[in-house]
């Protein structure tokens, strides 16, 4: 029993890891196609049918490019930076519940790597670690533009982490648990948290944009001011890691938002279909991925629609708009919750 469980977990980890990488890979393709659609262009269409092989070609290019480490860079840290960025991006998926239980024969498989009872805080911790990859890389490059990008990334992440944490607190008042599995189960059917926490979701969404350094919050790599931002000095696959980490982060934060606020693997009328548990689970996984892809599309939609913030606007928004709003949200949620529980 113990051995089969370990094997199942290993398979699950490998599958989730592979899915994250493939989704991140094809997000780059989707990004270009969507950008092309918004700008009335064709987009990549040379490699394979509809340019479907473009991500593979890009990957091969990244691996084959010359590896340059600047003479004045601090050697080890220059390599640690991108490695840390991709590591923190990949480990966040461990606590996300991808579906209900699958029953094969007599073994019940939870479609989740681990259900620690502080799951939501784990994600929050990993997100807060994500900035180290950028900071270390930016500092180790020994380049003023990289350093400025790194500093911007640090101050931006810290500012938006606060409102993100506060919006999660309001969510926890409603759910009463820190385990992502339980939060997902509570939203059975159509009782999605977004209906109880609309403001909290909005704050979380804005903060997710800021934490993943996506436009309009991509000031750390603002090319009009900072050449290339924190990855100015990077080339070859180390640059690829930074770019890839951004797409994995986008995938993971979409999955977190879908799980926390949009019901995760739950879908309306899931009890009325009269299907067996396994089919419900499989449909649930498909539904979760549909939600995730919808969020990824939303990320890209925003990127090609809204221009970048100015730096002072970014800080004002974080500290003077989002934090007061998030605190107000906590107070309102607490009062309403108390009122409903006592009534």
């Amino acid at each position: 029993m113990e051995a089969t469980e370990i094997i199942i977990k290993c398979i699950l980890i490998v599958v989730i890891f592979a899915i994250s990488l493939v989704v991140a890979m094809y997000s780059t393709y989707a990004e270009r196609k969507i950008a092309a659609f918004f700008q009335d262009r064709v987009g990549p269409n040379r490699a394979g049918p509809f340019g479907m092989l473009q991500p593979l070609a890009d990957g091969a290019k990244m691996f084959l490019k010359e590896e340059i480490i600047p003479a004045n860079a601090s050697g080890l840290l220059f390599i640690v930076g991108p490695s840390l960025a991709i590591l923190t991006a990949c480990i966040a998926s461990a606590v996300i519940p991808w579906g209900q239980q699958l029953t094969i024969g007599s073994t019940v498989i939870d479609l989740q790597v681990t259900d620690i009872n502080v799951g939501i805080l784990y994600i929050f911790g990993v997100v807060s670690l994500g900035v180290y990859g950028i900071m270390i890389g930016g500092w180790a490059s020994n380049n003023k533009y990289s350093l400025l990008g790194a500093i911007r990334a640090a101050s931006q992440n810290i500012s938006y982490e606060i409102s993100m944490g506060l919006s999660i607190i309001a969510l926890l008042l409603v759910t009463g648990t820190l385990s992502l599995r339980e939060i997902a189960e509570q939203q059975h059917g159509f009782h999605w948290n977004v209906f109880y926490q609309p403001l909290g979701f909005l704050i979380f969404l804005v903060c997710a944009f800021a934490e993943t350094n996506r436009t309009p919050f991509d000031l750390p790599e603002c090319e009009t001011e900072l050449v290339g931002g924190y990855h100015t000095e990077y080339s070859s696959m180390k640059l690829g890691f930074y770019l890839f980490a951004e797409y994995i982060n986008m995938f993971i934060s979409s999955a977190v938002m879908a799980t926390l606020y949009f019901g995760g693997y739950n879908f309306p009328f899931m009890d009325d279909l009269g299907l067996s548990q396994n089919w419900i689970t499989i449909i649930g996984v498909v539904v979760l991925f549909a939600k995730i892809f919808a969020f990824i599309f939303f990320f890209m939609w925003i990127r090609w629609t809204i221009p970048r913030f100015r730096y002072d606007q970014l800080m004002n928004m974080g500290w003077k708009v989002l934090i007061p709003l998030a605190i107000a949200n906590i107070v309102i949620s607490g009062v309403v919750n108390n009122f409903l529980n006592n009534a």
């Binding site: 502080v118 805080l121 784990y122 929050f124 911790g125 997100v127 807060s128 670690l129 900035v131 180290y132 900071m135 500092w139 350093l147 790194a150 500093i151 640090a154 101050s155 992440n157 810290i158 982490e161 944490g165």
Partner: peptide, 20 residues
Amino acid sequence: VVNFIVYMGAILVLFLYTLM
């Protein structure tokens, strides 16, 4: 997890920020 978030994720980021 709080040590992870608060000390590693926030306070030391600020330390690093100041030093940089």
